[in-house]
Design a protein around this nucleic acid. Structure first.
Lengths: 249, 249
DNA sequence: TAGTCATGTGACCAGGCAGTCACGTGACCG
DNA sequence: CGGTCACGTGACTGCCTGGTCACATGACTA
């Protein structure tokens, strides 16, 4: 957690430092991130950095557990799922919202990829990654169970394996497809954020519809079973990447 | 490509250097790999390294495009798929074989993850990764088309998207599930390779069956359609990660 | 024996890094 | 006015890195 000194800074300066750090992390990855380089770019002295943060990991953790979480939850709350579309309709909305958020924050999406994906990467991030993945898994498990409770997801599933595959499809699969469709990686997108518009609403809907179609065929109760379409929303907490955390002192 | 000097070495010394390099790459990742550290561990002088290889990337490329490919193709050829199980039976065998190979080569599986997964990671690997991913995508597309030609995979699919999702399910999904079941990451498995046995044949079959069940529901022609079970094998080239490459001079 | 050539070697150089610390600055207070 | 306190600063240390290069070694040849 950052030191008190950091929170005594003016909001503008604080934000300036964080934005610079986000850019650096996105462009150079966690390992490539150099404190020396970042402070030069931000126009502050290296000594100041150590009056704000313990070290690189402290800064990264703060960006993940506070900044990212805060932005994501507020984004999601501004686009609440329409109720009445049933479970898969809610999932569809969830995926579309997730894509929109990622495109609106490409730098953060890029810098947190190693910790939101099951890729070991930097040893230093191991603990953080394990914690985050565990929380995501729990969220996805919860999601499937909600679908079952609503009678729209079959019950003869191995829940644990289903959660793994569901994560792979909705995270890795969509990532892969987006990279292909946009013809660039996430890091390249950061350099040209306007290109995100080329992947327009129509393309996004087409992709998500393919994915939801897969999910319906895989998870949906077989045709002919009692379709219990009543309700059918999903708990918004199921979308979170990490346990909600409070702002620092 | 390594220099001539390297290929003039005795097979034992050559192999010793490569094995040391593989361990170092697996334990410290590409960015963390230090030539200085590796040569010390291998017991050779740093000057010698530069008489064998151009630099770190040269060594890494060679390990991927030659050593890995060679071992994988020979492994796959030693376990040819039984014909007669139809398309999904062949896919099942493919997945089981892939898992067995990965567990038999955990260090290489770990060191090549960034280049076989759509994770940008080290800028230096960007070109190599792009090339490899493109080749894999082509293989998966080919696989789906074979299934369609055999009448066992539905034709109303967006092929491109289907390939992305198929890759996510069979690579990322299985990776995620294996990490969960074994309770450790790939890197940790390298330190205790005997633990691979705890993920026994039965567990593997259970996991793969879940995945194949998903694929059947998603891709399979709807029940009642003409089941053209004739033939049903798959071309073994569809399994490759990279374009086949010849051994150096 | 003298010479040639491929190979082996490690001290050395320049550059980048994280983290420290003695000092500078300026606002506020008694 | 002097003193205190929070914050800002950048030179400095110690470490590790990739890559080079002048020299050593030893086999083989004329």
């Amino acid at each position: 957690m950052p030191k008190e000194t950091f929170f005594n800074l003016s909001p503008e300066k604080r934000s300036h430092i964080l934005e610079t750090a986000i850019s650096e992390f996105a462009e150079r990855s966690y390992t490539g991130f150099s404190i020396t380089h970042m402070v030069t770019r931000a126009g502050i002295a290296k000594g100041s950095f150590y009056q704000y943060f313990e070290n690189k990991l402290d800064l990264y953790r703060y960006l993940l557990l506070n900044v990212w979480v805060e932005r994501k939850t507020s984004f999601l709350k501004s686009r609440l799922p329409p109720s009445g579309d049933g479970f898969f309709g809610a999932v569809r909305h969830l995926l579309l919202t997730g894509i929109a958020f990622g495109l609106s924050q490409p730098r953060m999406a890029a810098m947190f990829r190693p910790v939101l994906s099951p890729w070991a990467g930097d040893e230093e991030l191991g603990a953080l990654q394990q914690e985050t993945l565990a929380y995501q898994r729990a969220s996805f498990l919860n999601l499937i169970e909600q679908g079952q409770a609503q009678g729209q997801v079959r019950r003869d599933l191995n829940l644990e394996t289903a959660a793994d595959l569901l994560m792979a499809i909705t995270r890795d699969g969509i990532d892969r497809a987006m990279s292909r469709i946009m013809g660039m990686t996430l890091v390249e997108l950061c350099a040209r954020p306007k290109r995100a518009a080329e992947f327009d609403e129509e393309d996004r809907a087409a992709l998500v519809d393919e994915v939801v179609d897969l999910l319906r065929r895989w998870l949906g109760v077989s045709a002919g079973a009692p379709a219990e379409t009543a309700g059918g929303g999903i708990d918004i907490d199921a979308l979170a990447d990490t346990r909600p955390v409070r702002e620092g002192p």
